[in-house]
């Protein structure tokens, strides 16, 4: 039996006056956590809003939980929890009112879990939404999304502007969601530490395009920084899959996106050090490489 993909985008494009999203294609499988990483203005929020049906694509096809978007958004969103960093609850209503609203709309509302989250996040049901701080607002929105037990969570920069403790609390809750392997998360952030912690698949976006998409482990395994010291008069051999290089006299630092023992073998005893790269370093190197390639 083929499981319905939680998100499918094929050749999606959306043009604005000063920005365009081009040829966005990716899939999110049930049980997967996809981290959407990109600098500010990369198109993460636009892609997420397209997935939520809040805006419509100019070209391409979008399906969420098997439903075409935005046409079937009312149906699809019954099983989607959406939280965005700039989302605000209704200012004149209390958190308790929002919880009652969610409970009356979603049959899957878990009141006991909501009560646990309200304590864990140190919120109060009688608080008016307009009196919540930014962090409390995010936590309240997450509480409303999580207690519905949706099959798909779409989170647009949820940890932006939160203190480390609040970030830790939220990430722990996300990990909890994933104990049920029929649920999935699309998580956007420019904080690669958060993404690295919870994602098992990562997509890098830059200037409206996907520049790379792969399993997290694959990224971490494939990317390496190789430090080389050449002898007097020596030159670097032609090497494949080198996406970045920096030189300082005889010292060269090469960045590869297809690391292999063969590559090191071709450099021979000039290799001084081979370093694993963090996701942030991979992200920056990836973006810079694609920007240069496009120019």
């Amino acid at each position: 039996m083929t499981l319905t993909k939680h998100i499918e985008m094929r050749g999606v494009g959306k043009a604005y006056r000063f920005f365009s999203l081009q040829d966005i294609s990716f899939e999110l499988e049930p049980g997967q956590v996809m981290g959407f990483v990109g600098p500010n203005g990369a198109g993460k929020s636009t892609t997420i809003r397209l997935a939520m049906g809040l805006i419509a694509a100019d070209v391409g096809e979008i399906r969420v939980l098997g439903c075409p978007m935005p046409e079937a958004q009312a149906f699809a969103k019954r099983d989607v929890g959406y939280v965005s960093a700039d989302m605000r609850l209704i200012p004149g209503a209390t958190l308790g009112w929002h919880m009652n609203l969610a409970a009356s709309i979603y049959p899957s509302w878990d009141a006991a879990y909501a009560a646990t989250l309200i304590r864990r996040f140190n919120l109060r049901a009688e608080q008016l939404a307009r009196s919540l701080s930014h962090g409390e607002h995010i936590k309240a929105a997450l509480l409303l999304a999580l207690a519905r037990r949706p099959r798909l969570l779409i989170l647009d920069e949820p940890t932006t502007g939160l203190d480390p403790v609040a970030r830790h609390e939220l990430l722990t809750e996300f990990m909890d969601v994933l104990r049920d392997d029929s649920r999935s998360i699309l998580f956007s952030s420019h904080n690669t530490v958060d993404v690295e912690r919870i994602s098992d698949r990562i997509t890098f976006l830059d200037r409206g395009r996907i520049v790379a998409s792969s399993d997290k482990e694959e990224f971490l395994e494939r990317w390496r920084r190789i430090e080389v010291q050449l002898p007097q008069g020596g030159t670097l051999p032609e090497l494949p899959h080198i996406v970045g290089r920096a030189s300082d006299g005889h010292f060269h630092t090469l960045t590869t996106n297809q690391f292999s023992d063969e590559l090191v073998g071709r450099l021979g005893n000039t290799v001084r050090n081979v370093q694993r790269m963090t996701l942030e370093e991979i992200f920056v190197a990836n973006v810079m490489y694609h920007r240069e390639a496009r120019q």
Binding site: M52, G53, L54, P70, Q73, A74, F75, A76, K77, R78, V80, Y82, S84, D86, M87, R88, L89, I90, P91, I105, A129, A141, A145
Partner: peptide, 21 residues
């Protein structure tokens, strides 16, 4: 106007409704 400006429109539109609804 304020629902749009204060971003609570995003919360409302995240509910299972269409733009028409």
């Amino acid at each position: 106007m304020n629902e749009r400006k204060e971003q609570s429109l995003q919360f409302v539109l995240s509910l299972p409704i269409s733009i028409g609804d």
